[in-house]
């Protein structure tokens, strides 16, 4: 038996919109820790890891670990029927091949339930090693989204370089080149507008902009994004979900050969 009641139902709607472009079908894992997902895109270049901790739910009952395979597009279709202020409850029964989403309006005058068919999904669960990153950039998520969108009109890849000066996003294409440098500005009064750059070693890595743009669908989840880079590792683009957890996107770099 599974019953997860999320008062801020809009969070689940935003999570789905954040990941469904990257991943079509995925197993949602439910345990005492929380509601989580790990899935790769079809070309195995990017990986998304989601965690919604059990403490973030108003009511969280998960009698035993359960994995539910869902089409994210179908789930998004159902969650789009929930109002932004609705309370969302996810219900599942052991051995059942369906999951139920219940939506309650804030005034309790409208209660809907949507039953969705589950699917069997073969997915390999990867071990993501704990890593010390060479550089960690924190910046406004909207600014990062703007940069990825702007650069993708010039080129297909972005070189992200971190130095003492700040973080530089560069691209080149048939029509020319572009460089955008963001400097640390942590003295600003509003923490959500701050850009901070922690650097242990200079880093420069190349990534496909198509994936970066897809990650920025998570922008509505958080005012800030954290970009962790190491020369030997996939970049991690993390959007924290207030009080609850995170959506992390991992993207393997491109290399010259």
């Amino acid at each position: 038996m599974l019953e997860l009641r999320l008062v801020q139902g809009s969070l689940l709607k935003k999570v789905l919109e954040a990941i469904r472009e990257l991943v079509n079908d995925a197993n949602f894992d439910c345990s005492a820790t929380g509601f989580s997902l790990q899935a790769m895109d079809s070309s195995h270049v990017a990986l998304v890891a989601l965690l919604l901790r059990s403490e973030g739910f108003e009511h969280y009952r998960c009698d035993r670990n359960i994995s539910m395979g869902m089409s994210l597009n179908n789930m998004a279709k159902m969650l789009r029927c929930a109002g932004n202020d609705d309370i969302i409850t996810v219900k599942g029964d052991d051995g059942s091949d369906t999951v139920t989403f219940m939506f309650e309006s804030p005034t309790q005058d409208k209660i809907s339930d949507f039953e969705m068919k589950l699917m069997d999904i073969d997915s390999e669960h990867l071990g993501i090693p704990e890593a010390e990153y060479h550089a960690i950039v924190r910046m406004p998520s909207a600014e990062f989204a703007r940069i990825c969108k702007d650069l993708s009109s010039i080129g297909d890849t972005v070189v992200i370089s971190v130095t003492k000066e700040g973080v530089k996003f560069s691209t080149k294409g048939d029509i020319g080149t572009a460089n955008i440098v963001c400097r640390q500005n942590s003295s600003v009064d509003k923490p959500e507008e701050a850009t901070t750059v922690e650097m242990n070693e200079p880093v420069s890595l190349t990534f496909a902009l198509r994936y970066m743009n897809s990650f920025t669908k998570a922008t509505p989840l958080s005012n800030q994004v954290t970009i962790s880079l190491s020369n030997e590792l996939p970049v991690v683009v993390e959007y924290k979900i207030a009080e609850m957890g995170y959506v992390r996107f991992y993207l393997a770099p491109k290399i010259e050969e």
Partner: peptide, 14 residues
């Protein structure tokens, strides 16, 4: 020539 690496190259199956 640039080649795109995959996630599997970095993260092992568990």
């Amino acid at each position: 020539v640039q080649i795109q690496l995959t996630i599997g190259r970095f993260f092992g199956c568990c």
